[in-house]
């Protein structure tokens, strides 16, 4: 176990390092932030002073080394635009994205998996066919369109839901969260639903396929032959056995949603990371871009590690050192 963790840590370090180099070079290849930062009519002296201040006069490799040295101290640099530490900026935006994403992914899993299991258990019933039709729709409808429709119907036509923003927030451990107030929850409902749609369909299809296959297996037949009720067969045997692919996809989806909830956040003007990254790309705010992309890499590494550890919990055959 210790060796496994060490190995993963080692791999994570290499990935983060490679990622930082790639991102750093990539980001520094596009545009010149100075043109965006200072007005065109500034004097040459001011220009030179700003360039020197941000260290932009150094060759790329030296800039990278400076960046790395700061990174070891936990300093991602200053945002060009907001003129505050990048880490602080990202941390202030993270909770909004985190709660929105978690709400979406949890909804997709907790509702999608049972529905999928049912659809796999009774593949020929009318309800199951309806479920599958909905899931195909969920796959094929573009997120932005669905989001716009949600706003049209619930915010504009009915007026029963807010069209955007986070609503009132409550501070918990010094961080602002929306999900603790009714108003916040109302604001969260539509974007979360929009974000969940694709994942919801994915979970349904995965759970259904796994269940259909397992229902024909000897394990299920043997459990039935021992007189177990259908509910026990589904909840104790089938659900446990289909959980591995589900956890895999759950992890991947959680990661990609956290990182790329951009579209939904933009449509519902949700002040999360997605909006931050779009803003910083348009304003060529390099430190924010670099820090954000590295955070994404780190997120995926952590999520994958958690997923791998979950495998071992779920399937005893994957545990090391068989007893």
């Amino acid at each position: 176990m210790l060796v496994f963790l060490l190995q993963r840590l080692w791999q994570a370090l290499i990935v983060v390092l490679a990622m930082s180099a790639l991102v750093f070079c990539g980001v520094y290849a596009v545009g010149n932030p100075i043109d965006v930062l200072i007005s065109p009519d500034a004097t040459q002296d001011i220009r030179a002073a700003v360039i020197a201040k941000y260290g932009l006069d150094l060759p790329l490799w030296q800039q990278y080394l400076v960046f790395l040295r700061r990174l070891i101290g936990g300093d991602f640099g200053q945002s060009f635009v907001y003129n505050m530490p990048v880490s602080q900026l990202i941390l202030s935006r993270l909770p909004a994205t985190l709660e929105l994403t978690l709400a979406a992914v949890l909804f997709a899993s907790l509702v999608g998996i049972p529905i999928g299991v049912y659809a796999g258990y009774r593949p020929n019933s009318i309800v199951s066919r309806a479920i599958m039709a909905v899931s195909i729709l969920g796959f094929s409808v573009p997120t932005f369109w669905f989001g716009l429709m949600l706003i049209m119907v619930f915010a504009v036509q009915c007026g029963c839901m807010p069209a955007g923003g986070r609503g009132s927030t409550v501070s918990l451990f010094g961080v602002e969260f929306s999900f603790l107030t009714l108003d916040g929850l109302q604001h969260m409902l539509l974007p979360a639903l929009n974000l969940a749609l694709f994942k919801f369909s994915l979970m349904i299809r995965l759970a259904r396929a796994g269940t259909r296959e397992l229902m024909l297996s000897d394990t299920v037949k043997f459990a039935r032959a021992a007189g177990l009720s259908e509910f026990t067969v589904l909840s104790r045997h089938v659900l446990r056995l289909i959980s591995i692919p589900l956890v895999t996809v759950f992890g991947l989806e959680l990661g990609s949603t956290l990182a790329f909830a951009v579209v939904t956040e933009t449509i519902f003007s949700w002040p999360g990371l997605g909006k931050l990254i779009i803003d910083s790309i348009t304003s060529l705010d390099r430190p924010v871009m670099v820090a954000y992309l590295m955070l994404v890499a780190l997120l995926f590494i952590v999520i994958n590690l958690v997923v791998d550890l979950t495998y071992a919990v779920l399937d005893p055959r994957l545990r090391k050192g068989r007893g």
Binding site: D218, T219, K221, H237, R240, L241, D315, P316, R317
Partner: peptide, 9 residues
């Protein structure tokens, strides 16, 4: 190999 559930004791 097939009848017992591999993930339950």
């Amino acid at each position: 190999m097939m009848t017992l559930n591999p993930v339950l004791t």
